[in-house]
Write a protein that binds this DNA or RNA. Structure first.
Lengths: 200, 200
DNA sequence: TCGGCTATGGTAACAGTGTCAACATTGAAA
DNA sequence: TTTCAATGTTGACACTGTTACCATAGCCGA
């Protein structure tokens, strides 16, 4: 959260104070209850108590607003994953835990998750990303392989794909959002049967 | 394709002939060039040469229209996978081929793919689905495991998740839509190192 | 053959959206 | 204190999905 939620001053002030932060806060709140497609620029402005076009003083576009929300959502996702990783104590269990946290975050915050993925900054190289989620991923992949770039890359991509695919399939209703399925699919034991790095 | 594309009769006829099929055809054509959220009911009606509200004689909703398009798209996806499977000659290579075909279909028909997943019929149990894609998946999973329900289930879910995750990450710009990455991620050799069913 | 009924199409309108141009207000710097 | 850039507002435009109501046409029975 941005913790600037009480910035909606009373109406007597012509200027708002920090409209940008208020809009992002309202957007994050709205994303908790509906999907990204259904949040409206005008309604956001309404809840903040401002005219629709005032938004354009802070974001050139609706897309830009969504992108800002996406960045914040991505940060929250990474934070959830880091907590899960620390709780699991690192190692291969930590790796699995971050994957399961990825899916659980998607299920409990569908709007935020969708926006984090769909409207985040376009990624070029996974290794050079600067968000916490990506950092965690490649760090674990390096730890659990021989460290060669190819191995790190492959494990990162495969792990991310599994977690993301499961999350999206559940969000889109193609698979039931069942906790047991998460544990079944994202399992260090069955997914990567020979712990990488153990044997050459 | 539905192969009813020339049904847009000239304007002198008050009734259209087969408006429903024409709408679906136009929708599929539109999905080839843009995403599902950007196709407009009114524009679809316009390209077919009919008033906006005529659509409501054949679909109760825009959602219903999208659902119909999603079913058709899902059929096309399954067909692409079956072709790839047959070309690879079955077995574990066929399994990998269907996975790669899944991702390639997503990349070459993003709109169709998104709609096939997002607006298809809500799935309850993977084993009881009646679309070709699901059938292929569980058939391969049964062939490549000992056939126990748990093993079949797990392999199905993991394989689907990997393919779907990779496809979505590429479609959403989080990973470059690189053919080499597809081969790298969806590889029978690295993803399922011990061919299931070989050793107990 | 004819009359009516139903399937299918059209018109007008409503509320809502994102966005632009032009105008208004404010706080702070010169 | 004056001016100016930052910020907010009003009004409008084109577009959307949807509804209520009206129009046409082709088929079915008398």
């Amino acid at each position: 959260m941005v913790t600037v939620s009480t910035l909606k001053l009373d109406k007597r002030t012509y200027h708002h104070g920090d409209l940008r932060a208020a809009l992002i806060d309202a957007g994050l709140a709205g994303l908790e209850s509906t999907g990204p497609e259904r949040i409206s620029l005008r309604e956001l402005a309404r809840t903040v108590g401002v005219s629709p076009t005032a938004v354009y003083r802070h974001f050139p576009d609706k897309q830009a607003l969504l992108a800002a929300l996406g960045c914040e959502a991505l940060r929250m996702l990474g934070e959830a994953q880091r907590e899960a990783s620390e709780r699991a104590g690192g190692g291969i269990e930590g790796f699995g835990a971050t994957g399961r946290a990825y899916v659980r975050f998607a299920l409990s915050h569908p709007g935020l998750f969708r926006l984090a993925i769909a409207h985040g900054p376009a990624a070029v190289d996974l290794a050079s990303e600067d968000d916490e989620a990506s950092r965690l991923l490649v760090a674990y992949a390096a730890e659990l392989t021989d460290g060669s770039p190819e191995a790190v890359r492959r494990l990162s991509l495969q792990a991310w794909s599994v977690a993301h695919g499961l999350a999206m399939l559940m969000l889109d209703g193609r698979l039931p959002p069942d906790d047991a399925i998460i544990d079944e699919v994202i399992s260090e034991r069955t997914l990567f049967p020979r712990p990488p790095g153990a044997s050459p």
